[in-house]
Design a protein around this nucleic acid. Structure first.
Length: 439
RNA sequence: CGGGGCGUAGCGCAGUCUGGUAGCGCAUCUGCUUUGGGAGCAGAGGGUCGCGUGUUCAAAUCACGCCGCCCCGACCA
């Protein structure tokens, strides 16, 4: 993409309303624009990141055996009356009336809807277990939206729902999502730590929040240091026994502020104690028959008996992750995108557009990078060099490929690694090899 | 929802107390110069001062009402 044809409205100054770093950079780098309180338009750069995160989530869900579908944003109040949540949910739920005065709501979550779908289409135990998911916009009318997309009212969420015949099966489904989440966040360049979470009325130990560590995180968290750098399980057989992985991850202490127990924490060797700030990016839990019972969702078992469905649900805050990643990865100059979610991989910076040699080399490199499938943002504008450097540091593409007459006089261009700041000077062809090799 | 604050050009702000021709910086446009870390000079464009009602000869400024947004708290993917 050429900057001269792209749409990337940057802000040189920080809007007054943005308090935290991710919000500031998201506005300044032109990722989003606030439409109203807690509701954002996604501009091209931000939309590309959002799409990449979404795709990583999708691939890892599929890999774990979950099946994608898509449910609507607007739901009828009827189902929610059935589960009893229409009255319970309170003002967080946005309620709407259509022209016939029928009660609708903008879905804050989808347990009722998915339960309705499954109960009316699944008849036999032979069709289970299943994990179904969708990635859809939700709305929760937060009392006070803040922190940009980190706590908006409208947000993009991946939510999965598992349907099993018994509690043991539900646990297997839970474990699949647990492992899928570890892999998902790791692929985005994040270190996530599962922490025991409130299980509500069901009890048991089957609820975890996935927290990523960031200095500016919203909540205080405590955990054993070994959890942070624990390697992510590769080549997982999701149909095999996942318990060992779960045990390894849950046997060490990890808790958010609300669940923190100072005494237990104190028993960890001092050098292994980690008190840090964190951001919740995922939440998984098992809730048994909480919805299947009131909504009468059951299938015929092997002996013809009725079996109530055992369910769990599993959320990932997709839009929140955009902010969370920036919180976890930035510096004074701007965003530092992990490669997997960067809007472009390479920023090709022409330092002198009206220099013929520079133009020729840039055009050549740009064409070859594009042909090699390397997503490249090519700054072919007449801006001054300093302005371009600042811009590219701000938008945080992983690699900058810098081409100017001074270097070309020796037949050289420069590659800068945004994260480490390391630069190397080398001939254009070598730079091309370097940047295409690592994709 | 309780408490606090803000709304003036695309962004950041001054002007409001004490009513009297709407300003500054950045950005934008034009020209010249400049050109490897947010250039300089000269010029130009851009505003129903959030909306409404009232007070007044006169309202960005005073009064009342409404709307929007932000911050702190309680709540949350």
């Amino acid at each position: 993409m050429r900057v001269s044809r792209f749409y990337m409205p940057l802000l040189r100054e920080t809007p007054a309303e943005a308090q935290i770093v991710s919000h500031r950079y998201m506005l300044r780098a032109g990722l989003v624009r606030q439409a109203s309180a807690g509701i954002y338009s996604w501009l091209p750069l931000g939309f590309r990141v959002l799409s990449k995160i979404e795709q990583i989530v999708r691939v890892e869900q599929d890999r774990a055996g979950a099946i994608e579908l898509l449910m609507p944003t607007l739901q009828s109040a009827e189902l929610w009356r059935e589960s009893g949540r229409y009255d319970d949910y309170g003002k967080e739920m946005l309620r709407i009336k259509d022209r016939h005065e029928r009660d609708l709501l903008y879905g804050p979550t989808n347990e009722e809807l998915i339960t309705d779908i499954v109960r009316s289409t699944v008849r036999s135990y032979k069709e289970l277990p299943r994990i179904l998911y969708h990635i859809q916009w939700k709305f929760r009318d937060e009392i006070r939206p803040r922190f940009g997309v980190m706590r908006g009212r409208e947000f993009l969420m991946k939510d999965s729902y598992s349907f099993d015949l018994d509690a043991a099966g539900a646990r297997r489904s839970y474990n699949k999502m647990f492992v899928a989440y570890l892999r998902t966040f790791a692929r985005m360049g994040l270190k996530s730590v599962p922490m025991r979470a409130d299980t509500g009325p069901i009890g048991g130990d089957l609820s975890h929040e996935f927290i990523i560590l960031a200095e500016t995180g919203e909540s205080q968290v405590y955990c054993h240091k070994d959890l942070v750098d624990m390697p992510v399980p590769e080549a997982v057989d999701f149909d095999g026994d996942l318990e060992p992985i779960i045990r390894q991850r849950t046997s060490l202490y990890a808790a958010t502020d609300e669940k923190h127990d100072g005494d237990t924490f104190a028993q960890i060797p001092a050098e292994k104690q980690l008190a840090a700030r964190g951001i919740e990016v995922g939440h998984i839990f098992y809730f048994g028959t909480k919805y299947s019972k009131p909504m009468n969702a059951k299938v015929a078992g092997p002996k013809g008996e009725d079996l109530l469905l055992e369910m769990g649900s599993y959320g990932i805050g997709v839009s929140r992750l955009v902010g969370a990643i920036i919180e976890a990865s930035h510096d004074e100059q701007g965003i530092i995108w992990p490669e997997a979610v960067a809007p472009f991989r390479v920023g090709l910076i022409s330092l002198k557009v009206d220099d013929e040699a520079t133009r020729k080399v840039c055009e050549d490199l740009y064409g070859k990078l594009e042909n090699a499938g390397v997503e490249t943002l090519y700054d072919d504008t007449e801006e001054r060099a300093g302005a371009k450097f600042s811009t590219f540091d701000l938008i945080g593409l992983p690699w900058q490929l810098i081409v100017g007459p001074r270097g070309l006089a020796q037949g050289l261009v420069e590659i800068k690694n945004r994260k480490t700041g390391e630069r190397q000077t080398l001939p254009p062809e070598a730079a091309l090899n370097f940047l295409t090799r690592k994709s």
